[in-house]
Design a protein around this nucleic acid. Structure first.
Lengths: 143, 143
DNA sequence: TTGCCTGCAAACCTTTTGCAAAGAT
DNA sequence: ATCTTTGCAAAAGGTTTGCAGGCAA
């Protein structure tokens, strides 16, 4: 998703019925402009967030999730991960996690639905959905 | 996987160079005989485990993971999930869960590896593995 | 003004660790 | 006899909550 400026962020918050506060704008901005899921740790690393109390970041993440702007992502680590929720123009996608450095990346072409439906049918089921996570080595770690 | 008795469990522990203790046998047995990933909560629910201290269960899970008998599974919840590692579960497969009656069935033809590898490669990753869960309606419930 | 948001501190929950006693090899 | 595992209690790390004051609508 393209980088959005402050006015656009505010408009989105308004559209979702959320109050506009500086902390909330910054949290949403991170998710909108990030290519990968973010944990509280990712926020704490950035000095922009050193002004905000951790609990406020947590509460804003919760608010954004309740509003449907972000969603939680499965992880093997001890921290919760969230990513921007898919909008209508977005594609259903999955993640691949590096088994060495734990980097997470989104995979934007999920072209296996047809095959999965067939597998389900063989077992006598009508498929409704699926969850899929890949593991592997990222470019850096496979060197 | 077929249910294994106490002697078989002991043999596996020995094979993996682990000492045989009652607690460890019971933890491994749960993973071997479970059709789904287990968290510490699943252990605490069972009264067999009420005899063991939580820290011992945690330590045994750690030991089994280090030995390569179980592996961690990505999750959105607050608790870590583990499942039997694929080596012991010689038949790589997935599950489909009925969204109505919660019946679980194994899917024994996983023919998507090739496609997943391609998806991973596009993202710059070398795929190592995947976890997949399908949801749908079973034969009975879709009537 | 009204009610939501924030910082602070404390509570909470899962997981880890230190230590001495009990158990496995 | 030696080295590992256990129970207990305490600590650690991430997340949530209560409260009083501050800010958005």
């Amino acid at each position: 998703m393209a980088i959005k400026n402050s006015e656009e962020i505010k408009a989105i918050l308004k559209e979702y019925g959320l109050r506009i506060t500086k902390a909330r704008e910054q949290v949403l901005s991170e998710y909108i402009n990030s290519k990968k899921p973010l944990s509280i740790f990712d926020f704490k690393k950035k000095k922009v967030f050193s002004t905000w109390d951790e609990s406020s970041i947590y509460r804003n993440i919760t608010k954004l999730e309740e509003a449907g702007l972000i969603q939680s992502v499965p992880s093997s680590k001890d921290m919760k991960l969230y990513e921007l929720a898919p909008k209508k123009d977005h594609h259903h996608h999955h993640h691949i996690i590096c088994t060495q450095c734990e980097a997470v990346q989104c995979l934007h072409d999920c072209s296996i639905d047809g095959q999965l439906s067939k597998m389900a049918k063989k077992a006598g089921f009508t498929m409704q959905g699926h969850t899929l996570e890949l593991t592997g080595l990222c470019a850096k770690c496979s060197k």
